[in-house]
Design a binder for these strands. Structure first.
Length: 246
DNA sequence: AAACGTACCAACCGCTCAATC
DNA sequence: GGATTGAGCGGTTGGTACGTT
């Protein structure tokens, strides 16, 4: 026996929602909550299937949605999270309050994907694009250089956690020089991890992800002594950096 | 001004998973 | 334990706005 359709297809409206339908759905949910999505359209007087109502509410009508353009910081967060979580949009959305998985997915497919490709990075793996016969020589130069030109000095609303026990899981630089700095080093330098922003940091610091000690999927930004940039990019993107720089 | 191409995004489709019977 | 169901997820589509020729 096959799975039954989520709703009766006949007689149900499809396509863009009207203002009137939106009002009905919002009014119903705000007054009654969501008993069961299948019942919502009937009870709210809508000729839609429950699935369609759910999607409309989650992606568009929810009062806690942020709407509007993504900030530079949000974009960077998405890149970082995607490098670790892949196309798990709902997980990524969970890290970005007020944003929906659909919104992030659309933004990724239309903007970020292209941005990474322009940087010579494979959007799926965040690794340098390899061409037939090995890595394209032009990408050798373009990749690290692209990182440098990627930066835009904009203020951010980053807040850093109290704990600094997590290990930076990446160091970069020539000759195996360890450039990652621990929180205590920042303290020694009179830098405050909790209130740091790209503007307040010295020019040779940039923001990277840090794995929580618990090994959880939580990703928090951290400051790393780097190439004179303050970008947030996937650490995985640097997997082949040494090879490229050679 | 019209035609065409591109970018964007809301909505849909089909699948999986977990809960329930 | 298997069937059924609802909810949620990720991929895809189609309409519209905008830019270019």
């Amino acid at each position: 026996m096959g799975r039954q359709p989520c709703c009766e297809k006949t007689g149900l409206k499809r396509g863009p929602w009207t203002i009137e339908e939106d009002q009905k759905l919002v009014h119903f949910i705000l007054n009654n909550g969501i008993p069961c999505w299948r019942l919502v359209p009937k009870m709210a007087g809508l000729m839609r299937c429950g699935k369609s109502c759910r999607l409309r509410w989650i992606n568009y009508l929810r009062p806690d949605l942020k709407r509007g353009a993504f900030s530079e910081m949000e974009e960077n967060q998405i890149i970082l999270l995607h490098s670790r979580l892949g196309n798990r949009w709902s997980k990524i959305a969970a890290h970005l309050p007020g944003r929906t998985d659909n919104e992030i997915k659309n933004y990724w497919n239309t903007r970020i994907k292209k941005r990474l490709e322009q940087l010579g990075l494979e959007p799926l793996t965040h690794k340098p694009i390899k061409h037939r016969g090995g890595i394209d020589q032009s990408q050798h130069k373009a990749f690290p250089q692209a990182l440098l030109i990627e930066q835009e000095k904009k203020s951010s609303e980053l807040k850093f956690p109290d704990n600094s026990e997590g290990k930076f899981h990446m160091s970069i630089g020539h000759n195996d020089e360890k450039r990652a700095v621990q929180a205590d080093e920042m303290v020694q330098k009179g830098l405050n991890m909790e209130t740091a922003t790209p503007e307040s940091m010295p020019a040779n610091y940039f923001c990277f992800g840090k794995t929580e000690p618990s090994g959880s999927e939580n990703i928090v930004p951290s400051w790393i002594d780097g190439f004179g940039t303050d970008s947030v990019l996937s650490l995985d993107a640097f997997d082949n950096l040494e090879q490229i720089l050679l």
